[in-house]
Design a binder for these strands. Sequence first.
RNA 1: GGUACCUUGCCCGAGUGGUUAGGGACCGGUCUGCAAAACCGGGGACAGCGGUUCGAAUCUGCUAGGUACCUCCA
Length: 483
Amino acid sequence: MQIYNTLTRTKEEFRPLHAPNVGMYVCGPTVYGDAHLGHARPAITFDVLYRYLTESGYKVRYVRNITDVGHLEHDADEGEDKIAKKARLEQLEPMEVVQYYLNRYHHDMEALNVLPPSIEPHASGHIIEQIEFIKKILAAGYAYESEGSVYFDVAKYAQDFHYGKLSGRNIDELYAETRELDGQQEKRHSYDFALWKKAAPEHIMHWPSPWSEGFPGWHLECSTMGTKYLGEEFDIHGGGMDLMFPHHEAEIAQSCAALGHDTVHYWMHNNMITIAGKKMGKSYGNFITLEQFFTGSHPLLSKAFSPMTIRFFILMAHYRSTVDFSSEALEAAEKGLARLTEAYERLQKLKAGGESSVDTKGLRERCKEAMDDDLNTPIVISHLFDSARAINIVFDGKGSISSEDLEELRRVWKLYAEDILGLRLEQQSASEEPYKKAVDLLLNMRLEAKQRKDWATSDHIRQALTEIGFTIKDTKEGFEWSL
RNA sequence: GGUACCUUGCCCGAGUGGUUAGGGACCGGUCUGCAAAACCGGGGACAGCGGUUCGAAUCUGCUAGGUACCUCCA
C-alpha cells in the first residue's frame, strides 16, 4: 500500500515497523466547542485508514488524543488557557466544560460511524509524563528556563537537527518574522515555543512542576502521549494540514531533542474543507457544526443532512484535496448515496441464475487497488457505482448473475462499502420487522387491486402511504418502499 | 513579504504522457394503467501563452486568478 508522506512529499510504500502491529496517532479535538464539518474530515479519513489496515490483517493501535489543556488564546487573553476562559464565562468547572463537549463530540462521531480509537488519552491526564518529557529536553540541552516557564531552544536545536523538515520552513525565514506574543521578552528568540508555561494568578487550570505552578505547552502532549502509547518510534501520525506548522514541526523537534532520533515514519495530513473557497475554521467564524448539519439549522443549509450523507460527501473527495462545501454539493452526495443504498438492498434480494451476463469480476481488485493508492476513496466509490449499474440490470430482469458471482459481489460490497468506507447501508433492525411486514401487507393488497385493475384502491393505498411519508416504487417483481 | 499548493465539462469531483472516471443536473428513448424508480443513449472539460515530445489536460517555463501556512485552528 502506498501512503503519501508529508515528510518526503511523495507516495511511499507502507512498511510497518513491527508487522503485523501498526501504531497510529491522530491529533484529536480541542474540546471547548462543538465539532464542525472540518473536524469530521480527519476523523473520517483516519477512521477509513484504521478500518482498511485492520481489514488488511494488521493489528492497529489507534491513539487519538483529547486536548483539554494548554492551548493559549491570542495575546489579548494574556496567556489564559482556552478551557479556563470558557469556564469562567460560563461559571463551570473546566473539567465540566471538557466533559460536556467531549460527550457531544463522541455523539457526533458515533453518528458519523467513526469507530472509537484504541486509546483516547487526555492531555490533562498526562501532566506528569509531560513534565518528565520536559526534563529530558532540558537534560539534552535544547530548552531553557525563564521566569518559571520553560522554552524550547529552536536555534540550538537547529544546529544539531533539521528544524523545518516537515513544513519546508527554514529558520532564517522564521527569524525574520516579528511577532507579538505573550512572554516574548522571556524568550531568547521569537520562534522559541513554550514547553511549560507559568500560570497567571487568575488562571484556574494549573499543576505543580519543578519550575512553577503552570501548564504544559501547546505541542507537548502529542510528543508525550504518542511515545508513551506507541513507542519511541511508530508508524503513522495524522492530522489536519493546518497543524503541519507549527504544531507538528514542534512535535518533531521535541521528540528528536528528547530522544535523539525521529519518532514518526509516515506523516499524513488531510486537506481542509472550504466554504465559498475559504477554509472553514474557527478563526474565520464561517464554520457549520455537525449538529447543525444533522438538524438543518443553519441559514446556508437548504435542509437537514444525515450523518451518512456527510460521511459520503467527505469520502467522495480525496483526503489531500480541498473540498468545497455547498448545499448543492451535499444534495448531490445525498442522491448518490441513496443510489448506492438502493443497489445494496437490491443486491441482498437478487436471485442468481445461470451464467453471468453482467460483468462483476474484478471489483474486489479494483477497490483494493484504489485504496492502496493513498486511500483513493473517490475511485472506490466510482467502482461501487459501476457495480450498482450491473446490480440494477439484473434486478430489472435485463441480465443474469451466477450464484458464485452474486456471493462474491455481496462479500465485496459488505467489505468495501460497509466495513472499510464505513457507510451504513443496511436497513432497519430486526425489531422493526412487524412494522415492515404491515407495510408489505398493505402493498400486497395494492398489488392484488392492481391485478384486478382496481386503480381506485391501488392509488388510494399508494397515496395514503405517500402522505404518511413512504416512497413507493413499482418494480417488475412487485414493489419497493422506503421512508 | 516568505513558503507551499491549486485552477478539469452546467455543478461536485477523480485521473493518467497516447485508450469512457464517477456522481448530480439536463435532453432523448425503453419500461409502466398512471407515477416513481430502473435501464439505454446524448453532449461536452482539462485557466491563458510558449517549450520538450511522434503525441500533453498529464512534464517544463512564464502569465493570470485563487487558496493555505507563516498566530489558536481539523
